[in-house]
């Protein structure tokens, strides 16, 4: 008994060996689930000043003791020679270390479907499908898929009118490849859209840039000739023509070539032009007496004929605009003006 009392005495003296009892001014808040103890008591400022390290060590030890005490109040069980307490669910809400993940941006199709209210009842596809022909499960994609495909497609079905000289097996594969690359393009476009990256447009330009089909035609014509070889090796669609309005300005475009003439044909054409022009000209009204000689000498010094025209012409008067006897039908070069009717 002496030994026990000795030990207890020693323990009382030794600060490190303390009882499980801890006295606190304010009760320590303990969450067993997350093994958390929160001490709201204020620090002893004097002890901090004198012996800071020891004070904190002591304080921590006391709080941990309280936590341990509480843990041992929980139901325990024995697992392999060790006593284990089962912790309840944590009550304390820990803040997240990472930010909340953003919702995944919708693909173009998903957005379209959402706008239009299209609900696809497509179920999740399984990774493998049963193939009747091969009598086994083959993967829909990925590993061993092409192997199964080649096993399956040892023969290609072709219509009666198909060209027998073509390699239909390779045609089929290229068609598939094209489909795949198109899908890849769409995937990348969706990616760019989600990341808000501007991608240069391909195909038909949008109406933001070109309001008119004629403008598009103009743009196409200009674009075609914008190569180093002024569009000489650029392919054309069947029946595709250059835009008319800029044809003459575009280098390398086929200009309206003058037709080659057979000998004598040019003369005939020119005579035709003359005939046309002469027929257009208004007949000149002959004022004088036709019985007189054509070339009559006018004697300006001689007295004037008595019959004077009433319209006396004043020399030196400025002609007024719009009163000239301009023939509106004769075509002249230069800017075309609107004719008043």
């Amino acid at each position: 008994m002496d030994i026990v009392s000795q030990v207890l005495e020693k323990a009382a003296q030794d600060e490190r060996l303390r009882t499980t009892e801890v006295q606190k001014h304010l009760e320590v808040e303990i969450d067993e689930g997350s093994l958390l103890a929160v001490d709201y008591n204020s620090f002893d400022t004097e002890k901090i000043k004198t012996n800071r390290e020891d004070y904190f060590k002591q304080l921590t030890r006391d709080n941990v003791q309280l936590l341990i005490n509480r843990i041992w109040e929980l139901p325990t069980k024995r697992v392999d020679e060790a006593v284990v307490a089962t912790l309840p669910k944590p009550r304390f809400v820990l803040p997240r270390t990472h930010r909340l993940p953003k919702p995944k941006p919708l693909t173009k199709w998903q957005q379209f479907a959402k706008e239009k209210g299209i609900k696809s009842n497509r179920k999740r596809k399984s990774k493998v499908t049963w193939d009747e022909q091969l009598q086994k499960w083959i993967p829909n994609y990925g590993y061993k898929r092409t192997q199964a495909e080649s096993e399956k497609n040892w023969l290609v079905e072709v219509s009666d009118h198909a060209d027998p000289t073509l390699d239909h097996l390779s045609l089929k594969t290229t068609a598939k490849q094209e489909k795949r690359s198109k899908n890849e393009l769409q995937r990348l476009r969706n990616l760019a859209k989600a990341k808000n990256v501007k991608v240069p447009r391909v195909g038909i330009p949008s109406s933001d840039y070109y309001q008119d089909t004629r403008q598009i035609a103009t743009a196409v014509t200009v674009a075609r000739s914008s190569t180093a070889s002024v569009g000489k090796f650029q392919n054309r669609l069947p029946k595709e023509k250059d835009a008319k309005n800029i044809k003459e300005m575009v280098p390398g475009s086929k200009k309206n070539k003058q037709p080659m003439f057979k000998p004598g044909e040019e003369v005939k054409r020119n005579l035709g032009f003359v005939d046309k022009i002469l027929s257009k000209r208004p007949a000149i009204s002959i004022v004088s007496n036709p019985s007189e000689s054509q070339n009559r000498q006018t004697d300006d010094e001689s007295p004037r004929p008595k019959k004077r025209s009433k319209i006396s012409k004043k020399g030196g008067k400025k002609p007024k605009g719009g009163k000239g006897k301009r023939d509106m039908h004769t075509k002249v070069g230069g800017r075309k003006r609107r004719q008043k009717n």
Binding site: N270, F273, I277, L278, K331, G333
Partner: peptide, 22 residues
């Protein structure tokens, strides 16, 4: 342009232009 030239020429020589052409 041929028409323009001929129109101008016919102002001076009228139908005689045919004699120049043919």
């Amino acid at each position: 342009r041929t028409k323009l030239v001929f129109e101008k020429l016919t102002k001076y020589i009228g139908g005689n232009l045919k004699l120049l052409i043919d």
